[in-house]
């Protein structure tokens, strides 16, 4: 959705105080000790005239869990939704800058958005299974791709449900409605639905915020398992969760990417004052 207007809007005011920040971050970025899967380059996002993301630069490592933390409204969900172009659905939202998936710009004109979304799966804050059977929920994406062979479908569904650690709980009632599951099961069903398409990246937007602690623990466990197969990006409010599940953590504040490093470093020796204040609970 990058419009010509967006290219011209270049608020000079904020670039000044950004410069030292970028300088600090560039050190960790250039010597990335990992394979880069997703990358945002000078990403700016506007809702109308409101600038929601400000020159965001970040590299997401392949087959690792990366967590985005930050106070409410800091733009972490917005950034996440840039990665599979879900922001395209928002009226008067415009984007400037680049998002690279395996070094290809996903905002290039030639990119087919449905194909992109198959490569970059997404799980939302509240479980949103379709009012269909469990089987049909998981097979939804495959059917969209045109898979009709029953055998392939049922194999993929079983594999995906196994991958989401849900198979044993639902294998006897694949025909019952997806909405009859508990909240935690529904969220794992939605994860199964996403991984049935074998995406490269799995984006999770606060996947545990509507769940109880036990269901949360299960999802977290699952994420650690899934990172061997997928690149995972998770947005969370919960710093403990970020510390538990992620290998890398990014701290965002007011639309800026304040700090990005491996999780241990960020939580023990943050470079930025703001990060320090946030993780010690002084604001947010």
């Amino acid at each position: 959705m990058s419009t010509p207007e967006a290219n011209t809007i270049q608020p000079k005011t904020s670039t000044l105080d950004m410069s030292n920040l970028l300088g600090r971050m560039s050190g960790s970025q250039t010597s990335a000790p990992f394979t880069v899967c997703l990358e945002a380059k000078n990403l700016n996002l506007y809702y109308g005239t409101t600038r929601a993301l400000i020159d965001v630069n970040v590299q997401i490592p392949k087959q690792q869990v990366t967590a985005f933390i930050g106070p409410s409204g800091c733009g972490k969900s917005t950034l996440l939704r840039c990665f599979n172009r879900m922001n395209d659905l928002v009226d008067n939202c415009s984007i400037k800058g680049q998002v690279l998936l395996d070094n290809d710009d996903i905002y290039h004109q030639a990119v087919k958005v449905p194909l992109l979304r198959r490569r970059v799966g997404m799980v939302f804050q509240k479980p949103n299974p379709f009012p269909k059977s469990i089987f049909e929920n998981v097979a939804y994406g495959l059917r969209t791709m045109g898979v009709k062979n029953k055998k392939i479908l049922s194999e993929s569904v079983e594999r995906a449900l196994n991958g989401a650690a849900l198979w044993d709980e639902v294998k006897d009632r694949l025909d019952s409605n997806g909405l009859s599951l508990s909240g935690g099961q529904q969220q794992r069903l939605v994860i199964a639905r996403a991984i049935a398409l074998e995406p490269e990246v799995l984006l999770l937007d606060e996947p545990c915020s509507a769940l109880d602690p036990i269901a949360t623990a299960k999802i977290e466990e699952l994420l650690v398992e899934l990172k061997d197969r997928f690149t995972i990006v998770i947005v969370t409010h919960n710093m403990q969760q970020a510390a538990r599940v992620s290998n890398f953590t990014a701290f965002m504040h007011l639309g800026e990417m304040v700090e990005f490093s491996d999780t241990t470093t960020l939580f023990t020796t943050p470079k930025s004052e703001r990060t320090n204040d946030y993780i010690t609970g002084r604001f947010g």
Binding site: L89, F124, N128, P129, F130, Y140, G141, T144, A194
Partner: peptide
């Protein structure tokens, strides 16, 4: 609900699908 539409779109379905 919007969340269901987004869920479907996020699975690579087009708007028509």
């Amino acid at each position: 609900p919007r969340s269901l539409r987004e869920g479907s779109l996020a699975l690579g379905a087009t708007k028509a699908e």
